[in-house]
Simulated scan of single mutants.
Amino acid sequence: MLLRTATLLALVLPAVVSLPVLGASQADLQRLEVTGACSDCDLSGADLQSSHLIGADLRGTNLQGANLSDSNLEGADLTGANLTGANLSNAFLTNAVFQSAILDGADLSGSALYFTDVSNASLENINIVDAQVVGTPISVGGPYEDYEEEVIGE
């Protein structure tokens, strides 16, 4: 019965995580995989490439150096999360919340930042080359102006 349940879960739940790197907690990775939420977790250095984390609750989570490239984080709540040096290249970040998050040194190249909330977030030395930035207060070299659409790198 337990094997059947595990097999059913493997078929129903999308593949969210792979093996952790650095300090990521295996228990926290499993919690994220099973529940789609992991607030205040340690996922530092985790390989979450191509994950489906739509609407995930990741408030206060340590994602330092994590690989979230090609992931779908639409509507995810990363309020207060630490994403220092994280790889978010080609990620889908529509309506994601990064309020008061730390994104210093993060790679957002090629990402879709549509109406992404970055209020009070630390955005030092981020890479947004070829990112699609719409309705998101991120600018290069000056204050944000109310752009209808801005595509960086084209």
Rank of each mutant, 00 (worst) to 15 (best):
Y144C: 13
S18F: 00
T116M: 13
E148F: 10
G141F: 13
S71H: 04
V16K: 04
T116N: 08
V12L: 15
A56S: 13
A86N: 01
L88H: 04
L11E: 13
E148K: 11
D77E: 06
D107M: 06
A24E: 00
E154V: 15
G36I: 02
G80L: 07
H52A: 14
L48A: 02
S39D: 13
D28R: 06
V118H: 08
V118T: 11
A91L: 01
T5E: 10
R4M: 08
V133A: 11
L93W: 04
G23N: 11
S18R: 08
G65A: 06
E74Q: 13
G153H: 08
S119N: 13
D42Q: 09
L53Q: 03
A15G: 13
G141C: 11
L32V: 02
S69R: 11
A24N: 01
S25L: 00
L123F: 09
L123S: 11
V134I: 14
D28Y: 02
L88N: 02
G110W: 04
S119K: 09
N67S: 07
A66D: 05
T136V: 10
D117R: 07
S50C: 14
N82T: 06
A10Q: 09
D130A: 13
N72L: 08
Y147L: 10
E33H: 10
A46P: 00
V151Q: 14
G75F: 07
Q49K: 15
A112Y: 10
G105T: 02
E124F: 15
S111Y: 06
A37Y: 00
D42G: 00
P143F: 12
N120W: 08
G142A: 15
Q99A: 04
A27C: 00
S122P: 01
G153A: 15
S89A: 12
N95C: 03
I54H: 13
L108Y: 02
A91E: 00
T7K: 09
G141D: 10
L123V: 14
D130P: 02
D130I: 07
V17P: 01
V151I: 13
V134H: 12
G36K: 03
A86G: 02
N120T: 09
V133F: 09
A56V: 06
G80W: 03
S50Q: 11
Q132E: 09
G141P: 12
C38A: 15
D77I: 12
L123P: 07
L58K: 06
G55P: 03
A81W: 01
G85P: 03
A10P: 00
L22M: 07
E145T: 10
A10H: 13
V21P: 00
P137Q: 09
N87Y: 05
L73F: 12
F98S: 04
R31Y: 01
E154S: 15
S122C: 12
V140Q: 15
L13W: 11
N62T: 00
S119C: 06
L13C: 06
G65W: 02
D40P: 01
A112K: 09
D57F: 05
S69W: 12
A6L: 14
N125S: 08
L88F: 07
L8V: 06
C38T: 00
N95D: 14
L93N: 01
L22K: 14
L58S: 07
Q64Y: 03
G45S: 04
S69T: 01
E74I: 10
S50F: 06
E148H: 15
A24F: 00
D57K: 11
L58C: 06
T79R: 12
L88M: 01
V118S: 04
L113E: 02
G110A: 03
Y114C: 03
V17G: 08
